[in-house]
Design a protein around this nucleic acid. Structure first.
Lengths: 130, 130
DNA sequence: CGGAATCCTAAAGGATACTG
DNA sequence: CAGTATCCTTTAGGATTCCG
């Protein structure tokens, strides 16, 4: 395996880095961090920009990111959120993930079509063998 | 927002790139892709190396990755899996995520401790105000 | 060994209503 | 507007058993 920190490895179930990976390898985290990296934003802005997220999920996500030290709430009254220094280090890898998802839409779609067609074939062949 | 593809955006709930993001921003996906990028591996190897994953979750993950065109099964009899060209493009961002998770364990832990201590304080203050 | 099938639980996530 | 509280549904994921 590639060496990173010698002490921690995400491949070990109990390693704290595994929990960290679970938190950051997450679509809501990715979208929120990317938006907050552009500029601090208020709750309502995030709620509108992350289309389809409910208030509950958004607040739960923000709290979890606060707890993990990636996001901080400034201006208590106006509920403005921003990234911490730690959170900012996260933008690059998450942004790369977002770019990947948007760049390869067609390739993924094509692969899915091929796979589903092949699955249909398999089903047909199985039925005709009965 | 940062511009990537003009046609797709993960921030739109119905955009196919959102589903793609959900698939790749996922701890199981990350671990499997990272391992397969090193070399093709058999089912049993993956099962041992991704500690804590069950056979069902592993097979479900592999099938989903196959359907999305990132993984292919070679040597049907020996069940050896490898990345496709598309899947290989995914290693860099996912590896970056893994490195992040392993590198900042201490910072995250410290943040959690601070957060939880502050939460205790808040609780105590609220109780004494009753 | 590499699965498939079934069942089940826990956790994520959604809907709705209410509040300062 | 920025939440909280409740309840409910859905999904991910785990446990177990069986099979070629």
């Amino acid at each position: 395996m590639t060496e990173t920190s010698r002490e921690w490895t995400v491949f070990s179930a109990q390693c704290p880095s595994r929990a960290s990976l679970a938190r950051i390898a997450n679509k809501w985290t990715a979208m929120i961090v990317i938006l907050l990296d552009e500029e601090p934003r208020r709750f309502g802005e995030l709620h509108r920009q992350v289309e389809g997220i409910t208030k509950k999920v958004l607040i739960d996500s923000l709290r979890a990111l606060e707890r993990d030290g990636m996001v901080e709430r400034v201006e208590q009254e106006h509920a403005r959120y921003q990234l911490t220094a730690l959170g900012r280090t996260l933008n690059e890898p998450l942004q790369a993930l977002r770019v990947w998802a948007e760049s390869y839409v067609d390739d993924v779609q094509a692969a899915q079509d091929r796979y589903d067609d092949a699955a249909d074939d398999r089903t047909l062949r199985r039925i005709s063998n009965d």
